[in-house]
Amino acid sequence: MTFSQQKRMSYYAFLAPGLLLFASIIIFPVAYSLTLSFTSFGGYGTPKFIGLANYAKIISDEVFLHSLRNNLLIVAISVFGQIPLGFLLAYLLHRKMVRNGNFYQTMIFLPITISPVVVALLWNQIFSSSGMVVAIIRRLTGENQYVMRIFEDKQLAIVPILFVLLWMHTGTYMIIFYANLQKMTPSLLEAAQIDGASESQMMMRIILPSMVGTIATTAIFAISGSLKAFDLIYAMTGGGPAHYTEVIAIYMYINTFKYYKYGFGSAASMIIVLLAVGLILLLQYISRKFERRFE
């Protein structure tokens, strides 16, 4: 066996186990559901080909559009909420602006260890009419029939969920940024400090530019995670009341598993993938521009 043969064989051997599993468990079923998305398959009988009809129907469905809006809000809260907050917290910890930094770091990261189903139940208990928040407000106002009306507002019902998502995920980003900040050569900052640079100047000129890559990468995870968000929301509200908190993954789930519309549901899950690819390409375009500017 020549060296290059040996190299090629090793290459395949290293890749094979992972790729084999990945292909048979994820790629193949996805291909299967891509095919189904062009049919009106309803669970039994032979699938009937209907072209893009499912996609057309989804895009004109009011419920889908509201779900899409909710998904985009979740993307927004992750990209413009969790990531900057995570960065800010990491920065404060890194620059030792608070005492007991280690303790705070532990506490802020803690929620990520808890299963989304548990988080949902916990917060449901807290917000529910027999829960903690309502009990406090009832005691404070003396109004014993008080309930939180925010859950019944079409536009705002998603807000408590956004809040819980923020609580859940900020810690992850904080840890990632914290770790990367620590990796920076301290001499750079020291030199800047000696030159009399202010805190904000250091942040803008030195720290942020070196973090562009990390920010872009975390944003990719934030986007893909946000678009397939399901567990937490399904366990908290099931998409209700009246579809107000529905997201695309729940929309897909209800159509597939409750209404037995496999073709339709498959089309919805393909839309999630398409959206994510689109957003990530956009993000890569933006971050490349930024990188160039900082160079």
Binding site: S128, S129, S130, Y146, V147, M148, F151, E152, G240, A242
Partner: peptide
Amino acid sequence: SPGTNQLTYGQGLD
């Protein structure tokens, strides 16, 4: 029930 649409089934009986 006040906020009936946010009460999980079972709270009615409670």
